[in-house]
Nucleic acid binder design. Sequence first.
DNA 1: AAATGCATGTAACGCGTTACATGATTTT
DNA 2: AAAATCATGTAACGCGTTACATGCATTT
Lengths: 183, 183
Amino acid sequence: MPPNRTDVALLALIAAEPRSGYDISQAVDRQLSHFWNESFGNIYPRLKRLHESGLLTRDTQRQEGHPERHVYTITDEGREALHSWFHDAIQPQPPRNELLLKLFFGRLSPPGVLTAQLEKYRAQRAATLAQLEAIRDMLRERARSHPDLRWWLMTVGAGIHAARAAVEWADETLATLEKPEDS
Amino acid sequence: MPPNRTDVALLALIAAEPRSGYDISQAVDRQLSHFWNESFGNIYPRLKRLHESGLLTRDTQRQEGHPERHVYTITDEGREALHSWFHDAIQPQPPRNELLLKLFFGRLSPPGVLTAQLEKYRAQRAATLAQLEAIRDMLRERARSHPDLRWWLMTVGAGIHAARAAVEWADETLATLEKPEDS
DNA sequence: AAATGCATGTAACGCGTTACATGATTTT
DNA sequence: AAAATCATGTAACGCGTTACATGCATTT
C-alpha cells in the first residue's frame, strides 16, 4: 500500500531535518506554500501513526513553562519508504478550476461579472509572479552555496512560469471580452 | 450558506440544458475534463439534494427495457443561486503539486529518478498541449457561430497557456539537471 | 459468448478542514 | 491589558472516491 500524500510530505520534511509538528506546519507555510499545504488537524494524527508504524522515532523534550515538544526523526524504514516514493508515479490531483468553470458557462452569467473576476485573478497572479521573482533573486544571493539551492530554484521556476502564463492568458482573455460578441 | 462547488457545477450544467445524472457525467468527462471533474457517486446524491431543496425539478421518463431516466431542469430559485455564484469570490483549491514536492527535496532522492519523472511529465504536458490546440482549431471551424464559442475558447486557451509554460519549464529544468552540481 | 454502453443508485471509507480545548510567554 | 507566539492535540464534520449492486440492449 503506497503511503498517502500527507505522509510522504511529512517524511520528506523530517528526513531533511528532525522536526516537531509545529515546526512542520511552519515550514510548510513558509517554504512550500506555493505548491503544497498541510493543516494542523491532519499533521498531528499522521505523525502519531507514522511513529506507531515505525517510520519515525519520537523524542520528547521537556522545557520549563512550555508544553512538551515532540521532535520526530526518520528511521531507516522511513527512509526506505521515502526512497520508493521518489520512484512512484505521480498522482495528479483531479482538476477543479472554478474560474474556468465560470467562464465555460459565461453565457449564463450576469454581464460584467466575469470581467471583474478575471481582473482580480490577473492581479493576484501578477502579485504572485513578482513575489516569486523576488524569492528567486534572494535565493541566488543568499543561498549561493546551499546544497538545496538548485532544487529550490526549480520549484520557484515552476511557479514563475505558471504565473507568467496565467497573466498572459488573462490579458488575452480580457481583451476578448472587451470586443463585441461577433469578433 | 454558499453552495458547494459540486452543486454549482451541476446547476450550471443543468441550466445550460436539462440533463440526467448520466448525461452530466458524460458532459463533464467530455467537455470539462481538462479543468473540472465529478464522480458518479457524488453526482446522484447531490442531484437528489438539489431537487429536495427546490433548485431543480425532476422529470421521470419511463422507457421500455431501459431503467428510468431522471431528467433535471433548473428552477427560478436554482437560477438565482447560479447567478449569485457568478458573483462569489473564487475559492482557490489548496495547492498540492507532488512533482514539485519531490523536486524540492531532490537532494534526498536516488540519482536519476527525478530526471525520469520530469521527462514523463514533460511528455504528458506536451501531449495535452497538442490535444488542446487541436480542440481549439476544431472549435474555430465547426462551432463558428455557436453562442458559447468565445467562452469555450477562453477555457481552452487557459489550458494551452498553462501546458506551454509547463513544457518550457520542464525543458529548462531538465537542462539544469544535466549540468554538474556546481553550475 | 463477451464486452460495451445505457442508466441509476447506495455504502463504506479515506482524507482533510474547521472548530474546540488548553495554557504559558513574550511582545505591543 | 490585549494580542500574538509557542505548542499540542481531539472531535465533528464535509466532501468526494471507490467499490458494490443491478439489469437490459447493442455491438463485437
